[in-house]
Structure formats: structure tokens, C-alpha cells
């Protein structure tokens, strides 16, 4: 009733209640905040892709903070199974309890440990689930989650219980494009690619992280940073988080702007690959041979 009322109110007013516009520590582009709000309103999982270091994972934290909802994070690893996000049955504990007479062995429920998705489904309040780096897992992993994400419910076989979402959680998924995700999965998601920030946008991001750093120094850093990103010899391009660290290091060491014009101190903060540093130093183009 209330939901339908608010829906009518919204359509009457002609716009949706804007809920996310970035936070004081997270600068979201107008585009990104718009998409977050659409995904929230349409109750679709939001799939975020982008270069490493463009703030994919941090986005979930920012959304949770802005909407003051609890955040449940599921870090996916190569060995992760879809089931683990729902629940895990702790058989060892149960065996142990039966042996030593501790706990109530007949109450299987005690031994069901809900995973991040399971917790979000069963919680009485709305929550945000971050499925981080979904592409790390097995190639079938996303497919195994299709049903649960569609129906927002799952069954616990050990107890015969069905856990259905009381409040559909907001689901954010990040991917590094290590693996291509299945079409059936992609079709169900709202997709957004975070493109690398333009210098202007980068400036406002840096202002959040280093509010007291001289404007001129920041500009010189940006100049060098974007120049570095354009060098073809560099395989692993430095990203936002590396730039933030680099400026931090420069400030702490008290490097002057003049010095920055001539050289690149603390290069290791920006470039993580030995071969990239070598390539930059020697200035030699990588040979191509046919």
C-alpha cells in the first residue's frame, strides 16, 4: 500500500527520489549516481566494470553510507562457490557437538551459517550486497546465482527451510573483465563502465583525498600522471589510487614543484612492474618483430 502510494507520488512529481549523489569522500559522476539510482529503483543488480583503481569497490561503501544501509561484502576468490554466498552447513561443528555433548545437535539450524546473500535475504531491513570481483571465480559461478538473484530466495536443504528476501537487497557487482560473464547473467544486470576520470574530475577526487595540498603541485602531478599514462611502453598504467598515494608520498617528502618538472620521484608508487620502470628509464620502445 505504502509502496504503491509512494510510486504514485513519485510519478505525480515526475521524478524519483534521488538517493545517491556520491558522498563527502566519494566523488561520483552525475552519470554514475543516476545509474545507481536506476538500479536501486528497478531492483536490478548493478554490474560495474572499469580499469583497476577507478573506485569500483569503494562505490558500494559510498552507496551504503549515502543511503545509510548496512553493507555485506562477498569477496569472490578463484575457489569461491555460488553456494557459499547463500549458506554453509557446518558439519564439523555438529559432529563435534554430538561427540562432546555441547550445543543442541538436533537443532540443525544452529549449524547453518548464512553467507552474505543469505544474510541480506533474511534481514528484516534492506541491505546492500557487494559481490566483489565476480570474474575471479569459476566460469560457471555467475550462472549458479541466476535463480537466487531472480527469485531473491533459496532453499536450505538441510532444514527444508526457504529463505525469501524480506526486503530485496541492493546488489552491486564488480568485475575486472578477467573473464567474460555469461549472457544470461549480463542480461539481468544494469551495466556501467567507469571510464578513467578526466583531469578536471580527477582534480575534485584529489581534493577529497588531499584537501590541503597546493593547487599548483596537484596540477603538476596531474600533468606528469596523464603523460605517464600515455606512454606506450608502460603495460600496467597507473590508476587513481596510485596517484593519490603518490601525491601523499610527495607531500610527506616535501618534494618541490620544480623538482617534479625534472624528474619523477617515488616512481615505484606509480609503476608496479619492474619492466615498466626499466622501459621508462631507458626510454626505449619495446621491440616488435615479425
Amino acid at each position: 500500500m505504502i509502496e504503491s502510494l509512494s510510486w504514485h507520488l513519485r510519478s505525480f512529481m515526475g521524478f524519483d527520489m534521488a538517493t545517491f549523489q556520491g558522498t563527502s569522500t566519494y566523488i561520483a559522476s552525475a552519470e554514475l549516481s543516476e545509474i545507481v539510482n536506476v538500479a536501486v529503483d528497478l531492483q536490478k543488480p548493478l554490474l560495474i566494470r572499469g580499469e583497476p583503481g577507478t573506485g569500483k569497490t569503494v562505490l558500494a561503501r559510498a552507496v551504503a553510507e549515502a543511503m545509510s544501509l548496512p553493507l555485506l561484502t562477498w569477496h569472490v576468490k578463484s575457489s569461491s562457490k555460488a553456494q557459499e554466498g547463500l549458506y554453509v552447513y557446518d558439519a564439523v561443528q555438529r559432529l563435534n557437538d554430538s561427540r562432546f555433548g555441547t550445543g543442541n545437535v538436533h537443532d540443525i539450524k544452529q549449524y547453518i551459517k548464512l553467507g552474505p546473500l543469505g544474510q541480506a535475504f533474511s534481514a528484516p531491513h534492506r541491505s546492500i550486497v557487494l559481490i566483489d570481483e565476480i570474474d575471479k571465480a569459476d566460469i560457471e559461478f555467475p550462472n549458479d546465482l541466476l535463480h537466487e538473484l531472480d527469485a531473491m530466495s533459496f532453499a536450505i536443504h538441510e532444514t527444508g527451510e526457504t529463505v525469501a528476501a524480506k526486503q530485496r537487497p541492493i546488489i552491486l557487482i564488480t568485475s575486472n573483465a578477467e573473464k567474460e560473464l555469461p549472457d544470461a547473467f549480463l542480461r539481468r544486470c544494469i551495466f556501467h563502465y567507469i571510464s578513467f576520470p578526466q583531469p578536471e574530475e580527477m582534480k575534485s577526487i584529489l581534493r577529497v583525498h588531499h584537501p590541503h595540498v597546493e593547487e599548483k603541485l596537484v596540477e603538476q602531478c596531474l600533468l606528469r600522471f596523464y603523460w605517464l599514462r600515455e606512454q606506450n611502453e608502460i603495460r600496467k598504467k597507473p590508476s587513481t589510487s596510485e596517484l593519490v598515494d603518490w601525491i601523499g608520498a610527495l607531500v610527506r617528502a616535501g618534494v618541490s614543484i620544480k623538482c617534479l618538472e625534472k624528474e619523477l620521484p617515488f616512481l615505484g608508487v606509480l609503476l608496479k612492474k619492474e619492466s615498466d620502470i626499466q622501459a621508462l628509464k631507458s626510454g626505449a620502445k619495446r621491440p616488435t618483430r615479425y
Binding site: 510519478s11 524519483d16 552519470e31 536506476v38 529503483d41 551495466f191
Partner: peptide, 22 residues
């Protein structure tokens, strides 16, 4: 649900997010 807010820009962003997969 009124997400375009009467703007072609928003329609562009919206449609792209829904229609594109990568």
C-alpha cells in the same frame, strides 16, 4: 517510473546502462 526526468541525456545514460552488457 520517471527516470529520464524529461531529458534526452538521461535517456541516453539509462538506455545505455540497460541495453549494453559490456
Amino acid at each position: 517510473r520517471g527516470h529520464t526526468l524529461a531529458s534526452l541525456n538521461r535517456f541516453y545514460i539509462l538506455a545505455r546502462a540497460i541495453v549494453c552488457r559490456t
